Amino acid sequence: MTMDAFLERLAHAIRDNATLPEFPPGVTLDEAYRLLPKLTERVSSHPHVGLKAGLTNVDLQQLFSLEEPLLGLLYDSCEIRPGDAMPFSPHRLIECEMCVTYQADGRPIAVGPAVEFVRVKFARPEDMTPGNLTLCNLGADKFMKGEMTAWEDFDFDALGNLEIVATRDGETLLKTTPLESLGGPVTAHEWCIGKAKSLGFTLPQNGILLAGTNGSALPAEPGNYDVHYGHLGTVSFSISAT
């Protein structure tokens, strides 16, 4: 099978929330980054709308023999609104993140809380490699932004005292800090934009950057969710049983 044919199969599986096809052997990170824009356009028929950091946890990086996180792209159909209901989908995970919007030259515009939904279902355990994870866009599925604040008006020092608390139907699932992933939105923005430029990725105007998972990813089980970001507000959503 040619790589173009494989990308078509991979894009089809991503669009259908299906198990990913078996990956060709030996996909390297360099090759995955080179192919990633082609995969993204096959999934959404449009250029990407932003960036996402993945494997920002140092222990996970060591597990995969990586020296830095991974970078993915966001599909133009990814964004949903806080308060929306989502159907249950097996293997979907919830990640509590920070979000940065940016200009076409990479300069930051605004920052705020976000929730990302990721979904990765490999056909074989041996397909779980850094190259394959990158090539499937780190499981990019959906995301929602909370209330955004202009970058120059944001109190970054206050993040050190902020606790993220995620609940489902009133039960606390997670407590974490917005500084856990890449040290927070400032360093996450710097790394992601720098990495994207080094890879030759286009930066869209009003682009969206998801800065990586704070705390553990949560199973996206049916229920009503509230992710509290202290003075930054709450991101709420629900997952239906069907």
Rank of each mutant, 00 (worst) to 15 (best):
A32K: 13
F117L: 02
M128R: 01
V49L: 02
E8K: 03
T149S: 13
F23D: 11
A11R: 12
V115T: 03
P185T: 11
T176M: 03
G160A: 15
P37I: 03
V115Y: 01
R119Q: 08
R168Q: 04
F143L: 12
R42E: 07
Q62V: 06
M148P: 00
R124V: 02
G215A: 04
G212Y: 02
M1P: 13
C136D: 01
E171K: 14
P25L: 08
Y225H: 01
L174F: 09
F64V: 13
P90T: 14
I208P: 04
R92I: 08
L63N: 11
R34Y: 13
T19N: 08
L36Y: 03
Y229G: 00
T129C: 08
T2E: 12
F64W: 11
T56V: 10
S89V: 12
A85P: 03
E116Q: 00
Q205D: 11
F6I: 03
T129A: 05
T19V: 15
I239R: 08
D127Q: 06
L209M: 15
P25G: 11
G223H: 10
A188Q: 02
L39V: 03
G194E: 06
A110C: 06
M144G: 01
V120L: 01
L10C: 01
I94G: 05
G215F: 05
G54E: 04
A241V: 12
A241W: 04
T129P: 05
T129I: 10
V100K: 04
A140M: 06
W191C: 11
A220C: 13
F6P: 00
G83F: 08
A5W: 05
W151D: 08
A53F: 03
N132P: 04
F88Q: 02
T28I: 09
A166F: 02
T19M: 15
Y229E: 06
V111D: 03
Y75D: 00
E68R: 14
A188G: 09
D141N: 15
E190G: 02
A123D: 07
I164P: 06
M128D: 08
L70H: 06
Q103L: 14
A104D: 11
D16G: 08
A11S: 15
P178Y: 03
R9Q: 13
Y102C: 02
F143Y: 15
D127L: 09
G50W: 00
S44V: 08
H189I: 04
L159D: 02
D4V: 09
T28S: 15
R34K: 14
F156K: 10
R107Y: 14
P130L: 06
T40F: 07
A13W: 04
G215T: 05
H12F: 15
T149A: 10
Q205H: 15
K38S: 15
S240P: 03
V120G: 00
P25D: 14
G184P: 07
E171R: 06
N57I: 04
T172C: 12
H46A: 15
L74G: 04
G200M: 03
